[in-house]
């Protein structure tokens, strides 16, 4: 999901506070599809991604497009507003109780010698890696992907060559939201969730994006790995409630050593 945030920030320089709430919507969507239609979240993540793509596209076209050139504090206000609406809508529709999605894979565990591997988590990880690679290939190899990179690199230059920059932004925002939707569906079976998860998910993914370096996909991915490893180690060696302490200490240390993040370029 940090990858989606990176794409949105990297392309439009708009900080999307509604990110975590979009992920929660992806989770509830997976939950609905599992409960009502009996579709396993590991199959429905594509549907969740598609629906969230449409939501992201709509939010961009209807709201964000009006403020891409506005100062950051206005963008933050708008995105916080979108976040609040999404979170409270989820609260209204699904209630405050944590829910959990069952997946057929959830009960499986593989033993590899002394290690045991939770298959659901493994699949979540593998699919996340595959999606990140697919997104990177899309941005590198396809015409639309290159157009997105061009608009991120130099929006005025993109208009000069005749790229419809608002349309490209809508696609990028949609893809960013789709990543989050997929991430939501894929984590739904391994993590109980409730509407209030949105904000903390946004905070975690900002942390990841800043550690990795703003606007770098590779950075978002490596940052995600680092933060999850750091949090698990923190939970094991300190205590579970202190895991955020570990990841934010990591953030501070990395920013002290590399102010632009691990893979960030210093922006002038």
């Amino acid at each position: 999901m940090a990858v989606g945030l990176t794409l949105i920030f990297g392309v439009m320089r708009v900080v999307n506070f509604a990110h975590g709430d979009m992920m929660v919507w992806g989770m509830y969507l997976a939950w609905l599809l599992a409960a009502r239609a009996g579709i396993d979240p590991y199959a429905s993540f594509a549907v969740c991604a598609t629906v969230l793509f449409a939501l992201g596209w709509g939010v961009q076209r209807g709201l964000v497009q009006r403020i891409v050139d506005a100062p950051h504090e206005m963008q933050i206000l708008l995105m916080l507003g979108v976040a609040l609406i999404l979170e409270n809508l989820a609260l209204l529709l699904f209630g405050p109780e944590p829910v959990r999605v069952r997946s057929a894979l959830g009960a499986l565990t593989w033993y590899l010698g002394p290690l045991y591997v939770d298959v659901a988590r493994l699949v979540t990880f593998v699919v996340a890696v595959a999606l990140t690679l697919a997104l990177a290939a899309f941005l590198r190899r396809t015409d639309l992907g290159r157009t997105i990179r061009a608009a991120a690199d130099n929006p005025y230059g993109a208009r000069v060559v005749g790229i419809d920059v608002p349309r490209v932004y809508a696609v990028a925002f949609g893809i960013g939201a789709a990543c989050v939707g997929a991430a939501g569906a894929l984590t739904a079976p391994v993590l109980p969730f409730q509407p209030a998860l949105g904000l903390s998910a946004s905070v975690v993914s900002f942390n990841i994006v800043i550690i990795g370096g703003m606007g770098s996909l590779l950075g978002a991915f490596v940052g995600g790995l680092l933060v999850s490893v750091a949090e698990s180690l923190g939970a094991v060696f300190l205590r579970p409630s202190l895991k955020e302490l570990v990841s934010f200490s990591l953030l501070i240390v990395i920013l002290l050593l590399r102010p632009a993040g691990l893979f960030g370029r210093r922006t002038p």
């Binding site: 290159r146 157009t147 990179r149 061009a150 690199d153 130099n154 005025y156 230059g157 993109a158 208009r159 000069v160 060559v161 005749g162 790229i163 419809d164 370029r265």
Partner: peptide
């Protein structure tokens, strides 16, 4: 600007306005 470019006017702007992190080939193809 997109429709005007499509109609056949190409603009080499002041300050070049290339895509600095993309390769020369990618810039040309764009």
């Amino acid at each position: 600007s997109a429709a005007i470019a499509a109609a056949g006017i190409a603009h080499v702007p002041e300050g070049r306005q290339l895509f600095p992190t993309m390769t020369v080939l990618e810039n040309l193809e764009l």
